[in-house]
Design a binder for these strands. Structure first.
Lengths: 169, 169
DNA sequence: ATAAAATAGTTGACAAATGTAACTATTATT
DNA sequence: AATAATAGTTACATTTGTCAACTATTTTAT
């Protein structure tokens, strides 16, 4: 590693965050000719789960549902998806890629795959398998640990308020 | 409950982002009794590099320098760090943990280590080593990857290679 | 059958993160 | 001395994260 002389000392959470920043920075560059400049992971997910509801995207990508509303609003505005009420459960809204959305999402999927292929090219198959296995194990472990209710939407009556930092200044 | 039925299909960048979100959720929960609610990774870094300048933190944690100004302003406001001009190069500002900052940062470091220990507890030493090695390789590769030079993008040739941001520390 | 609870999604307010351009001050290069 | 480079700052716009409160619908419990 040419940089980050003490990278090894960082927590795995921080290393993962840095990796994702570097990754999306490269991805954005590679897709700057598209009609959309973000939400790539959501479109990637929709490519595999076209027609799922909003909560499904939130659960799988660890995104808050109120943020998801704005994302879908934007994707509708640029003509990438439609939002259709499920007739069998009218609470749910299906998110469906449009023709245009499908076409551009194909490019996004290609970019994701190309970057993955490129950065894994010098890693042995065995190490790739181990890496992916451990990555998956870590996420699963973290889900079992006590966390804020950010991704799990548990009802918390009388939940503790965070102490205001401004009180101390 | 989120199921991530197709987690395996996500790109490594997306998986890393999800891991970091889960990680910081758990970390925040474990540190909710502290006087600060975020910037844990920066304090963790300062614990090892007390007295470094702002650019050094930016380089090592992949944070924009204009964002860093606000972060340091906040850390000063809550009394965690001081910002001291380097007399030998008056452009540089050294960031130094205060007594209070040191004390609370010790808790933060403990939490980081505890979470890492916990989630890696069921992973063999060999797999841990492989995982960390690959994680490091991937970040390294991404930094070297010329953003506009991806092979799938045949139409856009003749672009000048943009050198990766210099993070030398 | 009806009331209560849970689920899916929305809204509005606000804080924080992100990105960009222009800027000062200082030091290094030519 | 002029120019470039570096470290940091400011101002601004946009996106994202967070929270409480809300509607609508469906499920569960009584």
């Amino acid at each position: 590693m040419p940089t980050n002389t003490n990278y090894a000392k960082l927590s795995v959470g921080t290393k993962a965050l840095i990796l994702s920043k570097l990754y999306y920075s490269v991805l954005s560059k590679s897709l700057e000719n598209l009609d959309i400049e973000r939400y790539y992971s959501i479109l990637f997910f929709l490519n595999e789960h076209n027609g799922c509801n909003q909560q499904c995207i939130c659960n799988n990508l660890a995104i808050d549902k109120t943020a998801m509303v704005k994302v879908i609003d934007h994707l509708i505005k640029v003509g990438f998806v439609d939002r259709n009420v499920n007739p069998d459960d009218r609470r749910e809204h299906f998110i469906v890629l449009t023709k245009k959305g499908q076409k551009q999402t194909a490019e996004i999927v290609k970019s994701f795959h190309a970057i993955d292929a490129e950065i894994f090219s010098s890693v042995s198959k065995e190490d790739q398998a181990t890496f992916n296995k451990v990555l998956c194990q870590l996420s699963s472990k973290l889900k079992e640990l006590p966390a804020t209710d950010l991704f799990f939407n548990y009802k918390k009556t009388g939940r503790k308020k965070k102490s205001a930092v401004s009180d101390k200044v």
